[in-house]
Design a binder for these strands. Structure first.
Lengths: 247, 247
DNA sequence: CGAAATTTTGAGACCCGTCAAGCGGAGTGG
DNA sequence: CCACTCCGCTTGACGGGTCTCAAAATTTCG
């Protein structure tokens, strides 16, 4: 299965500083030469974030693009009565470059102490003009993002609570592996149960119950409150893919 | 509200042949000069589709990109046990250019007699190389698509059945208005109840029941089985936005 | 160690899914 | 022109999966 397309998008020159970057969301980390990245960094401003601090809110004018270099963020949208949908999480290497003019349609908030580099949209646009290779890269990466978004729609529209949680863990596992970070089948979750619930279209109670369920099936183990060890990866994938208990 | 960003993405030269194109999905209809569009069309092949005929299936090698010129299509993904999620519909002017190499992750099927133009990925890539303005346009448009995908995640993850149907009608209404097609508050639905259900993460029975609900609230009227008239647009929007009955 | 916050567990309710029957429009043939 | 059939849509009854509300257990942090 491939919730997120695997492998490098394009080959990187050996020694490329981002050879080990995770490729999720819209990132320009890959395929760019070190020169390009250095030049880009020169245009940016570093910003540190406390846990819970927002990068921006829904409705803010979209004047910046940024890249996460440390920590993790959550992206969410609210309905008028307060219902919340977390539409994604960001990890180091992820790039957010909303090409839609106007206002941000979501809020981004730090899950833990984090660090990012931001660029004014204008400066970034000028930079892209001068480095056409980036344009295609951005397009490719947003297409990857779209594929991931479609998988999430399948999850939210058609999967059971247990399948959703299995899918979530598998997604994190794959991502961690592509990033080359993390330790084997161990997942350290920077988000709490409510964030997971709002990402999976569930409640925190249901997430808790499904954790117990996956545990009782022997698929996972809770090494600590926010540390999940995947014990039966194949079983997890079967569940995540939704074979209806027959596969 | 703006389920899909409104208005033209960029200004078009007056007399541009696509001035009235709907801008949904990834389309390159806008911002390109007539010369560019003519050249592109020269590279393509026209294909007619019967109702129910597939353009391609999940798992097919992704060797083509295409633009819909007539009719309507549905995009869907299946789980192993047959559960289906419709992730989107395509209407004339919509462009599908999956930048992800490998295989299509979904199936596209005609809802009615339709007509499209397809291009081999290679030819299209060469064309884009020669027309750099398209690159940015593609990036912009896929970003718009991403915004729409996020709104759909909110719908699937957090909205009630009635809210989902209201959102659906409102989305179609906005799209029709942007396209400059259609007649006022009348929606002619090319998809059946099951397609709507699979798009909204519901069953066809629930769609039916919610239709009755919206009707009884005076928000819509069924001029015919597949012809919906929006009677109370503001009320529909209120419901779609999810103010929890308080807004 | 104690207080606050988060997570887990439990009981009951509700929304929507499932299954089944009835309705109605479109097409067909007499 | 009308009866018949087919197929999609609607409606109803019931059940189940998840939500809600509540409390206990666990972890975190001062």
């Amino acid at each position: 299965m491939s919730y997120i397309p695997r492998g490098p998008l394009t080959d990187l020159p050996t020694g490329h500083p981002c050879a080990d970057c995770p490729v999720r969301a819209v990132t320009i980390c890959r395929t760019q030469t070190p020169d390009v990245l250095a030049a880009l960094r020169g245009l940016g401003t570093m910003q540190r974030l406390q846990e819970g601090q927002a990068v921006f809110h829904e409705g803010d004018p979209a004047r910046r693009v940024f890249m996460l270099t440390y920590g993790s963020l959550k992206i969410y949208t609210l309905l008028l009565d307060g219902r919340r949908q977390v539409t994604g999480f960001m990890f180091p290497g992820d790039f957010l470059g909303v090409a839609v003019d106007g206002e941000y349609a979501f809020t981004i908030e730090a899950l833990e102490r984090s660090e990012l580099w931001w660029f004014s949209r204008d400066a970034f646009t000028r930079f892209v003009d001068q480095n056409p290779s980036i344009e295609r890269e951005l397009y490719h990466l947003s297409a990857h993002e779209l594929a991931a978004a479609q998988q999430q729609m399948v999850l939210l529209g058609r999967k059971t609570a247990a399948e959703r949680l299995a899918s979530f863990f598998y997604e994190l596992l794959e991502r961690q592996e592509r990033a080359g970070t993390g330790a084997g089948q161990i997942l350290d979750l920077p988000m709490n149960r409510l964030d997971i619930a709002d990402y999976l279209g569930l409640t925190k109670e249901t997430v808790s119950r499904m954790l117990a369920e996956l545990r009782s099936r022997g698929l996972i183990r809770l090494a600590a409150q926010n540390r999940v060890e995947v014990l039966d990866r194949a079983g997890l994938v079967d569940l995540a893919q939704g074979s209806g208990g027959n596969g």
